[in-house]
Amino acid sequence: MLPRPGAADLLKMAQQALQDHVTGKLEGEAKYHALMALRAIAIAEAELKEGAAADAAELKRIQALYEEPLGDLAAARRRLASDIRARRFEPGTPREVRLLDALTATTATRLRAVNIKYMVRRGRGAESAV
């Protein structure tokens, strides 16, 4: 829709402006709100940059657990959740291992975008667990 600068560039500059000129001058609740806004911008940036590829990869991972086509990502997620609840991935089976691999990869991708510091503290716990 827009010529340059695009959405990603605008977000980056908004983030920079907040960091350079605003947050350092604030205290207490105002600073808390500014930091939340900065965090939201960082997450939105990651979503813009990687969201489409991450969604495609997630659909591919879920689809790989099935033989028949599942449709789009929303349908695939619904089907997966419903089959897990119906216990169609029995514990201790190769099928469950493949399920956990898929869930872990998707969760790790999301967490990297939302709070990579949490993963640092965690020492990549979930990814090394499977």
């Binding site: 709100h33 939340m36 806004a37 965090r39 939201a40 997450i43 956990l100 869930l103 872990t104 969760t107 790790a108 999301r110 967490l111 939302v114 709070n115 949490y118 993963m119 965690r122 716990g125 979930a126 667990a129 499977v130």
Partner: peptide, 24 residues
């Protein structure tokens, strides 16, 4: 509320913890 919106995203941390701890 931005606060509530960001709280919703904390569920991802929980997912990660569950995948790390429950298999043990």
């Amino acid at each position: 509320s931005l606060d509530l919106a960001l709280t919703g995203l904390r569920a991802i941390e929980c997912d990660y913890d569950l995948l790390a701890e429950l298999p043990k």
